[in-house]
Every structure is written in C-alpha cells, then in structure tokens.
Amino acid sequence: MNEVLSLAGAMAAGVLLGAIFFGGLWLTVRKGVSSKQPALWFFGSLVMRMSVVLSGFYFVSGGRWERLLACLLGFIMARLVVMRLTQASGDNHPPAAQEADYAT
C-alpha cells in the first residue's frame, strides 16, 4: 500500500512538473515572438524550465526507477493536457505567425 501511494505521489509530481514545463514553454512562445530580444526569452526560459524539471525528477525519484517512471508518465500526461488546452482556444499560431500568413 505504501508503494502505491509513493508512485501516485511521484505521478502527481510529474503532472505538476509537466504543467510548469509546458505551460512555461507556451508562455515563452507567446511573449518571445513579440519581444525585442527573443533569444533572451527563449534561452532564459529553457534554462529555467530544464533546471526546475531535472531537479524535480531527481528529488522525486529518490534513486528508484519506479518513481522516476511514474513521474515521467505524469509529465507526459501534463503535456497532453497543456496541448489540448492551448489548442482549444483556437490560437494555434503565435501573433507574428498569423501576420506572416496574410503577407503571402
């Protein structure tokens, strides 16, 4: 029973880490395309998101591959949810890409 709770907690942590990572990516793309310094946005966001996620995986796993796998599964589940939520708004392209479509 204790092992099941441990894996459920690891999966929940993976969902949280995935929401942070992919939500942050979505925000970065929305802000970065209209920024005067997009490289700074994208690089800074990448470093920040990767640091949070890799640290989270390390601490959640506790050296156990089962917990790492559960965390990874939660992370992938969060990716699917974030993809669905961001596509549901009908905004599949960043504003700059929409403007470029009209130019062609």
Score class of each variant (00 low, 15 high):
Leu7Thr: 08
Leu7Gln: 14
Ala8Pro: 01
Gly9Leu: 05
Gly9Ser: 05
Gly9Tyr: 02
Met11Pro: 00
Ala12Val: 12
Ala12Pro: 03
Leu17Phe: 08
Ala19Glu: 01
Ala19Leu: 15
Gly23Leu: 08
Leu25Trp: 09
Leu27Cys: 06
Leu27Val: 11
Thr28Asn: 10
Thr28Cys: 06
Gly32Leu: 00
Val33Tyr: 09
Ser35Val: 03
Lys36Tyr: 02
Lys36His: 10
Ala39Tyr: 07
Trp41His: 15
Trp41Tyr: 15
Phe43Asn: 07
Phe43Val: 13
Gly44Gln: 08
Leu46Ser: 13
Leu46Lys: 03
Val47Gly: 08
Val53Tyr: 07
Ser55Leu: 14
Ser55Arg: 04
Phe59Leu: 14
Val60Phe: 03
Ser61Met: 04
Gly62Val: 00
Gly62Trp: 05
Gly63Phe: 05
Arg64Trp: 02
Arg67Glu: 09
Leu68Glu: 05
Cys71Leu: 07
Phe75Pro: 01
Phe75Leu: 11
Met77Gly: 10
Ala78Thr: 05
Ala78Gly: 06
Leu80Met: 14
Val81Ile: 15
Val81Pro: 04
Val82Thr: 09
Gln87Lys: 14
Asp91Ala: 12
Asn92Arg: 12
His93Cys: 03
Pro95Ser: 09
Ala97Ser: 13
Ala97Lys: 14
Glu99Gln: 15
Ala100Ser: 10
Tyr102Ile: 08
